[in-house]
Simulated assay, not measured.
Amino acid sequence: MPAHVLILGGTTEARRLATGLAARPGIRVTTSLAGRVARPGAVAGEVRIGGFGGAEGLADWLRTHQVDALVDATHPFAEAITAHAAHAAAATGVPAVVLRRPGWRPGPGDRWHDVPSLAEAAETLPAVGHRVFLSTGRLGLATFAHLTDLHFVVRSVEPPEPPLPPHTELVLARGPFTVAAETELLRTHRIEVLVTKDSGGEATAAKLTAARELGLPVVVVRRPPLPPGVTAVPDVAGVLERLGLSPA
């Protein structure tokens, strides 16, 4: 049984894992948050805020704090920290596991346009629709700033930093969202196309159902691949199994 588990967090699954581990006698759990959100949700156990200084800095932290297991439960698009975690685990010999909820898949009636990046999404938009619900978070919005002929509704937890597209309405909200609320938002703003990252999970999936029911196209930015040799488990139960722990 690991005595000290470091969770690279920021997701709902990371909080669930921290809660489960913190309740087990003999396990110290520390969750590391990037600090990009000023008021993150409550997390069980110990919490640290900020980066490590790259893969070498993370490896030093693992050694200094006698970490027995590392869980990368960051957002599926946190490509750099996932690469750093893989490198640090290999350098220190600390067992590591990646927790990634399954991605979304289109169903009957969906009109999805799969793209590999935000840049490709921006290139696709003018041919798909001119009133855009941009639900990709507050980072990376500069990619769309040159689209001066399009109208954007941008939703994020906290206000994004410029540059933004010149015609932008900002909606500050934190999920989960209901299908009814998402449908009302799309109708109220006369949205013609939805843009989203393939973050997976149920907390923000309602917008996809709403878009399907309204017959709207969806531009879906697919996840970056995991580092070579790295595999992921889809849920907290899979992490516990990897750590040699029985389900609660």
Score class of each variant (00 low, 15 high):
Thr183His: 14
Asp198Arg: 08
Leu208Val: 10
His189Gln: 13
Leu194Asn: 12
His189Asn: 13
Glu182Thr: 04
Gly201Asp: 12
Glu213Phe: 10
Glu202Leu: 14
Ala210Tyr: 04
Val219Asn: 03
Ala206His: 10
Thr183Pro: 00
Arg223Glu: 09
Arg223Lys: 08
Gly215Ala: 10
Leu208Asp: 08
Arg223Phe: 08
Ala203Arg: 15
Arg212Trp: 05
Leu194Glu: 03
Arg222Leu: 13
Glu192Trp: 00
Lys207Gly: 06
Lys207Ala: 04
Arg212Asn: 08
Glu184Ser: 12
Val220Asp: 07
Thr209Ala: 15
Ala206Ile: 03
Lys207Ser: 05
Glu213Met: 12
Leu186Asp: 13
Val218Lys: 06
Leu185Glu: 06
Leu214Phe: 02
Val195His: 01
Leu226Tyr: 12
Thr188Lys: 09
Leu194Ser: 05
Leu185Trp: 03
Pro227Asp: 05
Pro224Val: 12
Gly201Ser: 13
Glu192Asp: 11
Lys197Gly: 02
Arg223Gln: 11
Glu202Gly: 01
Ala203Ile: 05
Val219Gly: 09
Gly200Phe: 01
Val218Ser: 03
Asp198Val: 09
Ala205Met: 04
Leu208Arg: 14
Ala206Glu: 11
Ala206Asn: 11
Ser199Asp: 05
Thr209Tyr: 02
Ala210Asn: 06
Asp198Pro: 00
Val193Asp: 02
Leu226Asn: 09
Ala203Gly: 01
Leu216Val: 02
Leu186His: 10
Thr209Trp: 00
Val195Cys: 01
Val219Ala: 04
Thr204Ile: 01
Ala211Leu: 05
Pro228Gln: 05
Gly201Lys: 09
Leu185Pro: 07
Glu192Val: 00
Ala205Phe: 09
Thr183Glu: 11
Lys207Asn: 08
Glu184Gln: 15
Gly200Lys: 02
Glu192Lys: 01
Val195Trp: 01
Lys197Pro: 03
Val193Thr: 07
Asp198Ser: 11
Leu185Lys: 09
Ser199Tyr: 00
Ile191Gly: 06
Val221Asp: 07
Gly200Pro: 03
Lys197Val: 08
Val219Arg: 03
Arg187Gly: 15
Asp198Thr: 06
Arg222Glu: 14
Val220Met: 15
Ile191Cys: 11
Thr188Glu: 09
Glu202Ile: 14
Arg190Gln: 13
Pro227Ser: 13
Pro227Asn: 07
Ile191Val: 15
Pro228Asn: 08
Val195Phe: 02
Gly215Met: 07
Val195Ala: 04
Leu216Tyr: 04
Glu182Val: 03
Pro228Gly: 05
Arg187Lys: 11
Glu192Asn: 00
Ala210Gly: 15
Asp198Glu: 04
Thr183Arg: 15
Pro225Lys: 10
Arg212Ile: 09
Arg187Cys: 05
Gly201Phe: 02
